[in-house]
Amino acid sequence: MPQYKISIEFEGTRYSGWQKQPNSNTVEEEIESGLSRILPQPVDVIGQGRTDSGVHAEEQVAHFYHSDELDPDKVLYALLGVLPHDIAVWNMQEVADDFHARFDATARRYRYQIIRRPAPLLRSFSEMVLDDLDLDAMHHCAQKIKGTHNFDSFTKPDNENPDSVCNVVHSSFAEDEYLLCYHIEANRFVRHMVRRLVGTMIEVGKGKRKVENFVDMIEKPSKQKNGHGAAAQGLILEKVKYEKSQKNS
């Protein structure tokens, strides 16, 4: 059967994350419902990974099979009429039948937004921090995150991801007037990892934790060390990267 890769943007405010779950409204469920209405037949959408409740995405990637050849432009246009206003499928392409959105992904990139003054246009997509921050200390912590580490200090037990080792290829802060953004890219992420990294670095910036304490959490990982979590609303999945050719021959 033909297989299709889709790219999805969504505002996660109203949703209990990406992954389907009982008695909760999720992005995956809305996508499957929309596709099933316009095709029409039941569709099983497989995402590259899950996002937590309240987290947003500029490019979440997923794939699905269909029994017939589809016209991507027509499907994308039809989805505009059936998906809620805070979810959009903005790209669709046929891919090789062995493509897998999750297992073929080589890297994921996230952005966390921190606003330093009241900013209504960004409030739903950022955490507001009005305290003075020691940005030099936060930059130092961000550099310590780069490389291959066990991130047990910044996650929680998860049967789907029992191994907390991730290879971080980029970790940095960028400041533009009142907006402070943290950027991170890695081969994989474990549950709550980015939010706990950012939340703990904010505590360092406020002087509530020392840089040495943060470094200890990186170098001597333990789930008992309990990194502080930042608000979900500031986290945005920016990009999922693939190296494998995705087009059918």
Rank of each mutant, 00 (worst) to 15 (best):
K225A: 06
A119L: 14
N159Y: 13
Q233C: 15
L80N: 15
G49W: 02
Y15N: 08
I115A: 07
V43K: 03
T26L: 05
R117V: 10
M128D: 07
P162V: 07
E238K: 08
V190Q: 05
A101C: 07
V43P: 02
F189Y: 08
R117Q: 14
E30H: 07
D98W: 11
V129Y: 02
A230Q: 04
A107F: 09
T51C: 00
Q3Y: 00
Y112E: 02
H139L: 03
K208W: 13
N226L: 13
E30C: 05
K146E: 15
M1I: 04
L80F: 06
M1Y: 05
H140L: 14
L122A: 11
E28C: 06
N213K: 12
Y65M: 15
G12P: 03
A174L: 14
K208F: 10
L80K: 13
V43S: 05
Y15P: 11
K5A: 12
L197K: 05
E29P: 09
K156V: 11
I236H: 03
I218G: 07
E30N: 08
D176T: 12
H228N: 06
A88E: 13
S67E: 15
F64Q: 05
A231I: 08
N213S: 13
A142S: 15
Y4P: 04
K206C: 09
F125D: 08
M217G: 09
E94D: 05
I38Y: 00
L80Y: 13
D68R: 12
K5H: 11
H149S: 04
Y242L: 02
Q246W: 10
A107T: 01
I87Q: 14
V75H: 03
N226R: 15
D158V: 00
S24K: 15
K210F: 12
H139A: 09
Q93A: 11
D86Y: 08
F151H: 10
V27A: 06
A78P: 12
Q224H: 14
L39S: 12
I115K: 06
V240W: 05
E69A: 12
S53C: 08
P157C: 04
D216E: 15
Y110W: 10
V55W: 06
E160M: 09
E94Q: 14
K247I: 09
V190N: 02
E127I: 09
D86I: 08
N150K: 02
Q21R: 00
G234K: 03
H183Q: 14
F173V: 02
D44A: 08
R37L: 14
I218L: 13
Y178T: 09
F154W: 01
D216P: 00
F151Y: 07
A231F: 09
A231L: 12
D86R: 07
D158H: 03
N91M: 13
P120S: 08
N226W: 09
D131G: 07
H56C: 02
E127G: 11
E30P: 00
T13D: 04
Y242C: 04
T155C: 14
R50T: 08
S16M: 03
K74G: 05
V198R: 09
R117Y: 08
P2K: 00
E177D: 14
L180M: 10
K223A: 07
P72A: 03
L121Q: 11
S24W: 04
S245D: 09
M217Y: 02
G227Y: 00
C141E: 06
D68S: 09
H66M: 01
